[in-house]
Amino acid sequence: MHSYAGMDRERKSPVDDRRTGRSDPHPRPRDEIDENLKRVYSRLVEEEVPDRFRKLLEELRRKESGR
């Protein structure tokens, strides 16, 4: 898995802040919904950058330096 400068600074894994051992036997639905969102969303985020976008950015850079 590639790691880019700035990524670690900005993105703690959303799953890491899961509250374990909380004493409240009735967690608020709001917290649970946000927790679900983080779990589902983090599965989308952790994918590699597709070649399509690497190439696009390389192409944009190349065109510009060619000017």
């Binding site: 880019y4 400068a5 700035g6 990524m7 993105r11 969303y41 989308l44 985020v45 952790e46 994918e47 590699e48 950058v49 597709p50 976008f53 690497r54 950015l57 944009l60 850079r61």
Partner: peptide, 18 residues
């Protein structure tokens, strides 16, 4: 700052898919 664009692509995709 454009060098940093690629680091945001995974999050952009997740947001776009959502």
């Amino acid at each position: 700052p454009r060098d940093e664009l690629i680091t945001h692509v995974p999050a952009m995709r997740a947001f776009a898919i959502s």
